[in-house]
């Protein structure tokens, strides 16, 4: 065995040992990323062509007050979305973990079912519901709660709603995993030692399920920064996110180098968040496929 091993080491070229997965990762992820990194340091000529000469001006433009306010707007929306997702997903995941296997399956199906439809189509249905002539307004008018249709669509609230709607399963799944693993004996022990249910939740359940809350938050917060289509459909341009700016640089302004710099910045923020997550004891595996 040992002989054959050294034989292979000496005679087989390194390139043939690259697995298809590695090749796939290099071709479709590493190389494009490298390209983005390179052009983020380049300029453009008048015809929007990329000019390969080193410059930091794209990065300097990131500190423009307008861009900074868009960053802060994105972070606020992401934060709001994450908090609301935790509040909605926690009870959902808790019930799912403690109910009968049949109901658990049912809840899981209802959670995952919308995923079989394109999220843009699903967001359009929200527009039908929330628009000025949408069903919600019609209903409220009919029962006389309001006299004038409420402007619900194209607000920051609508963007957050869209984000929560799209990203909720990513919070439920990691939460369900940790809550499901929780030893029921710990609740009994806590109760046995004199803790009322609220205290048991605060001292036992919450700390032990915190890893799931962290993992879910990462899974929700990061996509939130980039889901420009949610902002487009639900916010209608009223609420600019980093993702919107990046998409516009590539698709409308044709300033790829500047868009690249914005994208690199987003990647750095993401990496920073993941770093904080792992530093505070989070495990990459708990995030699933990112």
């Amino acid at each position: 065995m040992q002989d054959r091993h050294t034989f292979r080491k000496k005679t087989v070229p390194l390139i043939t040992m690259i697995s298809p997965v590695t090749a796939w990762l290099i071709l479709l992820i590493a190389l494009p990323l490298l390209y983005i990194l390179v052009i983020s340091f380049c300029g453009t000529d008048d015809a929007h062509n990329i000019v390969f000469h080193f410059t930091l001006k794209n990065y300097a433009k990131l500190f423009d007050p307008t861009i900074l306010s868009i960053y802060s707007n994105s972070l606020v929306i992401a934060l709001l979305t994450t908090v609301i997702c935790i509040l909605v997903a926690y009870p959902f995941a808790y019930i799912m973990a403690s109910t009968t296997p049949f109901r658990k399956t049912l809840m899981m199906i209802f959670l995952m079912l919308p995923f079989w439809t394109n999220s843009i189509i699903r967001l359009y249905s929200w527009r039908t519901l929330l628009g000025t002539n949408g069903y919600v307004n019609l209903l409220l008018l009919k029962i006389g709660l309001i006299q004038q249709p409420i402007e619900m669509l194209f607000t920051r609230g609508a963007v957050v709603l869209g984000m929560v709607y799209t990203l909720l399963p990513f919070m439920v799944l990691p939460l369900h995993t940790v809550i499901d693993k929780l030893d029921g004996g710990l609740h009994e022990a806590s109760s046995d030692l004199g803790a009322k249910p609220v205290k048991t939740f605060l001292h036992i359940t919450l700390p032990l399920t915190a890893p799931g809350i962290f993992a879910g938050s990462i899974m929700v917060f990061i996509p939130c920064l980039g889901y420009f289509f949610v902002s487009n459909l639900m916010g209608g341009g009223t609420s600019q996110l980093i993702g919107n700016v990046i998409s516009r640089q590539f698709k409308e302004a044709f300033n790829w180098p500047y868009g690249a710099a914005l994208a690199i910045m987003l990647i750095l923020i993401t990496l920073l968040l993941v770093r904080i997550y792992t530093k505070t004891g989070g495990k990459i595996d708990d995030l699933g496929v990112m």
Binding site: D183, G185, L186, E188, A189, S190, D192, L193, H203, I204
Partner: peptide, 10 residues
């Protein structure tokens, strides 16, 4: 008070 079979330590 109870001593549990699985200990149930926090």
């Amino acid at each position: 008070n109870t001593v549990f079979q699985s200990y149930a330590l926090f």
